[in-house]
Design a protein around this nucleic acid. Structure first.
Length: 177
DNA sequence: AACCGGTACAACCGCTTGTTA
DNA sequence: CTAACAAGCGGTTGTACCGGT
């Protein structure tokens, strides 16, 4: 059995929301010494947090490289495409979105994009047209129309919502921005 | 005004992976 | 080779906030 990464039994270990003072201590320390050795960082920075917690706070909230604010339509599209290709590999997806973190992308997916796809009749888990809509579309579309291969959505999801431009091939990952 | 359900997001937890001795 | 460790990742939870009743 492995040791826990940090000693949560220590009653002085701080948990929950970060205070402004804690944030400042973390920023000051990393500005001075840079990232790395998260395990020792809390002690060195004078924080009563575990290293994991410090890392998460820095990466997801305090890092100066973060682009805060709403996701653009382009980012929405890109996330949907990348999710179709990579699945729940949030860090990989976030790696292709400058200024966005895995946690941010994951939260955005779960609270916005999943719903958006469901509304459009697309199963967010496999990017296929939901059963009911799938049947409806098969009834509706001409037999020889170029459309989905096994229902997998590959191109921009918005176009799929209109029942148009459903293509059979997945986008080339290398061609993405 | 009070309650309730839904949403958004920060943070935690447990597991996996990569590295080193 | 393998055990131990640090870091990273993804799932999940907790909670503040908001709009509707």
């Amino acid at each position: 059995m492995r040791k826990p990464c940090c000693d949560h039994n220590k009653e002085e270990m701080q948990r929950g929301a970060w205070s402004k003072q804690e944030d400042q201590k973390l920023i000051d320390y990393i500005t001075k010494h840079g990232e790395g050795c998260w395990r020792n960082l809390p002690k060195a920075a004078g924080l009563l947090r575990c290293g994991k917690s410090c890392r998460l706070r820095w990466i997801n909230y305090l890092s100066p490289n973060l682009k805060r604010g709403n996701f653009s339509e382009d980012e929405d599209d890109l996330i949907i495409k990348l999710h179709a290709l990579l699945g729940n590999r949030w860090s990989l997806i976030a790696g292709r979105l400058p200024g966005r973190t895995d946690n941010e992308v994951k939260n955005y997916w779960n609270s916005h994009l999943r719903r958006k796809l469901i509304k459009m009749g697309i199963d967010p888990n496999n990017h296929r047209i939901s059963h009911y809509l799938h049947i409806k579309r098969l009834e509706f579309l001409p037999k020889n129309s170029t459309r989905e291969n096994d229902g997998v959505i590959s191109d921009t999801a918005s176009s799929c919502a209109d029942g148009q431009q459903i293509t059979s091939s997945l986008p080339d990952l290398n061609s993405l921005p």
